[in-house]
Simulated assay, not measured.
Amino acid sequence: METPVAAAAEHQVITPSILYFGTPVVLLSTENEDGTANLAPMSSAWALGQTVVLGLGVHGQSARNLRARPELVINLPAPEHWPAVERLAPLTGHDPVPAHKQGTFRYEPAKFEAAGLRPLPADLVRPARVAECPIQLEARAADVRTDTAGAFIIVEATVLRVHADPRLVVPGTQHVDPARWSPLIYNFRHYFGLGPELGRSFRSETRTVR
Rank of each mutant, 00 (worst) to 15 (best):
E2Y: 10
P4F: 09
A6T: 03
A7G: 08
A9R: 07
H11S: 13
S17D: 09
L19V: 13
L19K: 09
F21K: 04
F21T: 09
T23H: 11
L28Y: 04
E31M: 08
N32E: 08
N32C: 05
E33Q: 13
E33V: 10
D34A: 05
D34T: 03
D34C: 03
G35L: 09
T36W: 10
A37S: 14
N38Y: 01
N38K: 08
P41Y: 01
P41A: 08
M42D: 00
S43C: 12
S44R: 11
S44K: 05
A45R: 00
L48C: 14
G49K: 07
Q50M: 12
Q50S: 15
Q50T: 15
V53E: 10
L56H: 02
Q61A: 12
S62D: 06
S62A: 13
A63E: 03
A63S: 15
R64E: 09
L66P: 02
P70F: 03
E71N: 08
I74W: 01
N75Q: 10
H81P: 12
H81C: 13
W82L: 12
A84R: 13
V85L: 05
V85M: 03
P90W: 01
L91P: 07
T92Q: 02
G93E: 12
G93Q: 11
D95V: 10
K101W: 07
T104S: 14
F105T: 01
R106D: 03
R106T: 12
R106P: 02
A110P: 05
F112P: 02
E113C: 06
A115S: 15
A115E: 13
G116V: 09
L120P: 03
A122F: 00
R126S: 13
P127F: 02
A128C: 11
A128D: 11
E132I: 14
C133E: 04
Q136I: 01
L137M: 13
A139R: 01
A139G: 03
A139P: 00
R140A: 07
A141F: 02
V144G: 04
V144I: 11
A149C: 06
A149Y: 12
G150C: 04
G150F: 10
A151C: 10
A151W: 15
I154M: 15
I154W: 06
T158W: 05
L160C: 06
H163A: 15
R167C: 04
R167T: 11
V169C: 06
V170M: 12
G172K: 04
G172I: 04
T173D: 13
Q174H: 12
Q174A: 15
V176H: 05
P183F: 07
P183D: 06
P183W: 05
H190N: 14
F192N: 05
L194F: 10
E197T: 13
G199M: 06
S201N: 03
F202N: 07
F202V: 10
F202H: 09
E205F: 07
T206P: 02
R207W: 05
R207A: 15
R207M: 15
T208A: 14
V209M: 09
